[in-house]
Simulated assay, not measured.
Amino acid sequence: MTEPILLETATAEQLVPPMTFIVPEGFHALPVGIPDEERAAAMTEFVRGVYPGGDDALWQSAAPFYGLIAEAMAAAGLAYSAFGLFSLDSGGVAHCALSVAAYVTDHPTPDIAAQGILAILSSDATNDARWLDLPCGPSVVNITVREISLNPEVTASGERTTLHTGQIQVHVPFPSGRHTAVFTLDTAAIDYWDEFCNMVTAVLQTVSFPEATEPIENTST
């Protein structure tokens, strides 16, 4: 396991309290939300980590591309975004994307927030939403699997191909009563779905709120 990741971010409405979690080795975090003057150096370090066997030509061409992705992620409100690359015994690579964001919920208790989130997600028949008790408190996990049809011009075989993608999304209400964190893992490596589910479970077991306080009353009208 790597060192705990400390997130201190803000929504458009207000500052989000700090939260920590741990991800396993194999994740490469995009430098989201860093100052402009630090972005070029950070992106260079990032692409060297993703492509350790590359050369200067590859790193210099890849850095601007991933820089644009990092800017888009920050603009979308993500506090953390990473690519997971895991070597397979067959010689290939299983890949996924992991992101963390926060949104305002102003809930009186985490339990009430989780109940509301579960009710909303369960109203969509395409969702598989379930209650999940974590060491940090109640949460809701929602799993979706989609089938995507790829046109022949974008496939290696030149034939129409069907691609299955899966998403695991977990809503974790903050104990402070103001925000809810959202952990999202997306992957097209469905053959390793069980492994990715276990990985998300392991990450969620490490979530903590360093400055957690007693739940506060909802004063919104």
Rank of each mutant, 00 (worst) to 15 (best):
G137T: 08
P138F: 08
V154N: 09
D128F: 00
D128L: 10
P173I: 02
P135E: 07
T162P: 01
A125Q: 15
P138L: 05
V141Y: 01
R146L: 11
T155E: 12
L132P: 07
S149G: 10
E147R: 08
A125P: 09
V170Y: 03
T162Y: 01
I148P: 03
D133L: 12
Q169W: 01
V140E: 04
P175I: 04
H164C: 13
C136R: 12
S157P: 07
V170A: 10
R160H: 06
P135C: 10
R130H: 10
N142H: 02
N151P: 08
T144M: 15
I143A: 09
P152Y: 01
T165E: 15
L163T: 05
V170P: 06
P138H: 06
G137K: 10
G177T: 03
V172G: 11
I143T: 09
A125K: 13
L134W: 08
R146W: 02
S122V: 09
P138C: 07
Q167D: 12
H171F: 15
I148H: 06
H171W: 11
N142A: 11
P152D: 04
N142P: 04
C136A: 15
E159N: 10
A129Q: 06
S122Y: 01
G158A: 12
D128E: 14
V154F: 03
G137A: 06
L163M: 14
N127Q: 09
N142R: 11
A125F: 07
G166Q: 03
T161N: 02
P152G: 08
R130P: 03
P152F: 05
I143Y: 00
L163N: 01
Q167A: 15
S157F: 00
G137Q: 06
L150D: 09
P175N: 04
S122D: 08
F174T: 00
N127M: 08
G137V: 03
D133F: 00
I168N: 03
G158V: 13
T126E: 14
R146M: 13
V154G: 04
T165W: 00
D124V: 06
E147H: 03
Q167E: 15
R130S: 12
D128H: 05
I143N: 02
T126C: 09
I143H: 06
